[in-house]
Computed example of a mutant assay.
Amino acid sequence: MNIDFNKNKDGLVPAIIQDAKTKNVLMLGYMNNEAFEKTKATKQVTFFSRSKQRLWTKGEESGNILNLVDYKIDCDNDTLLIFANPEGPTCHKGTDTCWGEDNHSTYGFLSTLEQVIEKRQNSAQSDDSYVASLFEKGINKIAQKVGEEAVEVVIEAKDDDDDLFLNESADLLFHYLILLRAKGFQLDDIVKVLNERHQ
């Protein structure tokens, strides 16, 4: 890995900091060669502060350090992507990220679907909502639906109709998310269990 610190006159390259677990972007800083070498040596992310004109280890005053996990260099060798585990909020304003966002895991459309399910659970208009009507019928009905969908997935897995298999799989996942919500959990709780098993 040859980082081109000489590409800019100031000898600095941008360093994008990404949470190693949630994959959220936490902040942007700048590193010179000395800051990069110190980051690798101490395993704590260190920048070159343009305002202080010196090396600056994130959290040296606040205690909100960034623990180095890994790093990559881009295709032009002039931008770093740093994977880190944060201890506390990253932004000096006290937020998780410098964009004011909460640093929690998201799962793309599945997280959106979880939000829709939560909204329907809290809706009083079950006549218009299949999800709300399931919540009204209770945990036994929801669990029964998950069981039914699981059986249908198994049946379609033994057949050659990929469209039916995918549609039944989608039904199973959808009803499983409803069951998780009914039990007071989210997909993130399952991911945590899987991560613990993986370690």
Rank of each mutant, 00 (worst) to 15 (best):
F36M: 10
Y107V: 05
P89L: 02
N24M: 07
K43S: 14
L180S: 02
L164Q: 11
Q53C: 02
S111Y: 10
E34I: 12
D10C: 03
E60P: 13
A124C: 12
D159C: 12
E61C: 01
Y107C: 09
L166M: 14
G29M: 03
A182E: 15
E196Y: 15
P14S: 02
I17N: 04
A132K: 13
E61A: 10
I139E: 12
T57K: 08
K141V: 15
N85T: 14
A124I: 06
V45N: 00
K145F: 12
L12I: 09
L110C: 12
A150D: 04
N64E: 10
T42Y: 09
C75W: 04
K192I: 05
D189I: 04
E37T: 00
Q125K: 14
Q115V: 01
D188F: 01
E114S: 11
D189C: 06
F135M: 04
K43P: 01
D70I: 00
M1G: 06
L26E: 09
N8H: 13
N33L: 05
G59M: 09
Y107R: 08
K21H: 15
S62R: 12
S133L: 07
D78C: 05
C98Q: 03
L187H: 06
H198Q: 15
D161A: 07
A41S: 15
S123P: 03
I139T: 11
I65A: 06
Q199F: 14
L187G: 09
L179V: 02
V151S: 09
Y107S: 10
N167P: 00
W99Q: 05
D163S: 11
K72V: 00
P14W: 00
L55R: 15
T22G: 08
T106P: 00
T90W: 00
D102M: 03
Q53M: 12
L110V: 09
L68P: 03
T42S: 13
T112G: 12
Q44W: 06
Q121C: 05
K7M: 06
A20F: 14
K158L: 08
V151H: 13
K158D: 07
W99C: 01
S169N: 13
H198E: 14
V45G: 01
F174G: 06
K72Y: 04
I190N: 12
D127Q: 14
F83P: 01
F83A: 10
D70V: 00
D189P: 13
C98F: 01
N67Y: 08
D78V: 02
D127Y: 15
L180V: 07
R120F: 03
D78Q: 12
A20V: 04
D4G: 04
D188G: 02
K43F: 03
S49H: 10
E118T: 05
Y30T: 11
T79E: 11
L177W: 08
F174C: 07
Q125T: 11
A143T: 06
D159N: 12
T39S: 13
G11F: 09
V25Y: 13
K43V: 03
I190Q: 15
V193W: 04
Q199I: 06
D78I: 06
R197M: 08
E156F: 15
L66E: 01
F135I: 07
A84Q: 05
D78H: 06
D160P: 01
Q199D: 12
F36L: 15
D78S: 05
V193H: 07
G100A: 11
E152G: 01
A15G: 14
L55I: 11
F135S: 05
D102Q: 13
